[in-house]
Each structure stands twice: as C-alpha cells, then as structure tokens.
Nucleic acid binder design. Structure first.
Lengths: 149, 149
DNA sequence: CTATAGCCTTCGTGTTACACGAAGTCAAGC
DNA sequence: GCTTGACTTCGTGTAACACGAAGGCTATAG
C-alpha cells in the first residue's frame, strides 16, 4: 500500500497530478483508509501507469474517463473499449511518425551546426570560401540570417 | 507569394496559428504588401515549417522566439544556437522513446482485446473457462472490471 | 455603383491539465 | 505538545491557441 507521494515517485507523475487523476475517477481501484488517506495498491499504481500512457499519447482526460467508466461497466463494453483503443493506437502511431520526421529535421539542423562549428569559423572574408559558407548556412534556420530589416 | 490561408494549407497549421506565429515574430522574413496583408514567400513558409517542427517536438513558443532572435543576430550566435538545438534534439529523442513505450503498451492492450473478441465472447458460465478468461482479462485495463464498488 | 468576399484589427471569453500557494483541519509519532 | 504529512477548498496563473464579434479596408464581379 502506497501513499500519494510514493505513487507519484513510482509513476513519474507529480503529487498534484496523482490527486487530480484520482479525484477525476481515473483510478477506480483506489481506497481511502480510516483517516481518509488515499491508499494505492499495485492495481491502482497500474491504473496510474495506464492513465499516464493514454494521456501522454494524446488522449484527453475526458476520454480516458469514458474509457475507465466503460471498464467499470463490465465485459459487455469490451467491443467499445477495443474500438476506442484501436483508434487511439492509430492516432498515436500517426503522431509517432510525425515526431520521427521532426527528429530527422532536428538531426539535420544539428549536423549542419556541427559542420559549421568544426570548421572553426571559416574565413568569411575570403571570397574563395563564400560558396561553401553560403551553402552551409543556407539551411540553418532556414536561410542566412536576414539582414533585410 | 502566399496569403495566410495558403500558408495555413501548406503547413498544416490553422490560420489562427499562422497569424499568432507571425505576430509573435517567429517568421522574420515575412512582409506586408501595401494593403497591410501578410505575404509569405518560400522562406517564410520554411520558417513556418521550422516553427511547427520545434513546437510540435515540445519547444515552448518563448524559446522558439529566443532562437529566432538569435538567428537574426547573425553568425556570432551560432554556438548558442547549436547548443540550443542539440539540447532540444536530445529532449525530443527522449520523448520519442517514451512515446514508443506507450505505443508498445497500446499494442499489447489492443492485441488482448482482439484475442478476447476473436474468441467470440467465451462462455463465462462454464467454470472450465474461468482461468483462461480471468487471465485474459487480467490486463485489460489493468485487471478485471472491479465489482468491488 | 454596389454588393460580396477576403483580408485585416482588437476585444473578449473559453479551453485543457494541471502548477502553485494559502489556509485550515486531522491523526500519528517522538 | 509539537512537528510532520496527509488531507480539504479556494483562488489564481499558465500555454497556445480556438472561436466569435465587431468594425474597417480593398479589390473584384456583376
């Protein structure tokens, strides 16, 4: 049996978030002891993990709540739950793909910066270098610094 | 040259967001025509893409603004920009890893649901199935629906 | 010439998922 | 008996827009 503080540590959530989730009914297995203190058993910790997973993968609290409520209604809601999860998984996968593209983008930027820095500030005054330099800077971010303004 | 609407379409942002970003100074290359209308050239579209990338990978607008301002200061800020990007890339990578774990989690859930559904509602009334059923439901999400309450 | 459409502005409110602090209340342990 | 740690409610703040309203400009089409 764990307290809020422990549950927070175990899940990587803040105490605020843990209380918030329990108060919203996202941790149905939770119990209070005689002193009204939230007691988390392993199952409750699992729910917290699950809620964290769903939330961090983009599901709004409201929808998580719906899902939890469906769980509480018993086996008859399994088809709906399944559909919900499938949909959400697809959405999360799409986001993951986009995140990968963003990472690629960032990789390119950092690689460019590294290339520039490893050249130890190429001699900008030597016209012979200009092509190279222009080209190098050309995409960091996303053009040579504008001096238009 | 593109209008706000076009820029929104091209980048996948909303018009609101595009105006928001330009007003915050995140698109330094943007110009207004004689009728005070925002005109996006290719460079501005690129900035929008870049801002979108940074934001969606978790960078707060405020920090993006700092980065853009550094860009405008010229080559002398390249080391800072590089460091900023490296840090952000690392953070984004960490998030990506976590996202992957979440996806794994979701895969398991959906697989479990599929398994249950493909068995076409196993006969819950037959005690011979109970072990199987209990076990199957045991992790969907994250225990058999509580009937404690 | 006027009507419509598209762009602009500012204003104001709503949203999500908390973060944070304050104030006050318990119960347990030293 | 005092500190500690848990609890409560209250209230405010935040980010990054979303959305609508009101009002104004300009270009174009009929």
């Amino acid at each position: 049996m764990h307290t809020v503080k422990e549950a927070a540590l175990m899940t990587g959530l803040t105490e605020h978030a843990v209380r918030f989730y329990t108060d919203k009914g996202l941790v149905p297995s939770i119990q209070r002891n005689s002193n009204n203190i939230r007691m988390f058993d392993e199952e409750s910790i699992n729910w917290l993990h699950g809620v964290k997973c769903l939330k961090q993968s983009g599901m709004p609290i409201e929808v998580i709540k719906m899902y939890v409520d469906l769980c509480l209604e018993g086996d008859s809601t399994i088809p709906q739950r399944s559909a919900l999860m499938m949909e959400h998984k697809e959405a999360a996968l799409a986001k993951l793909e986009e995140a990968k593209r963003h990472i690629d983008h960032l990789e390119q930027k950092t690689a460019l910066y590294q290339a520039i820095l490893e050249q130890r500030t190429p001699d900008t005054t030597n016209p012979g270098n200009w092509d190279k330099i222009q080209h190098m800077h050309a995409d960091v971010f996303y053009s040579p610094p504008m001096r238009k303004a």
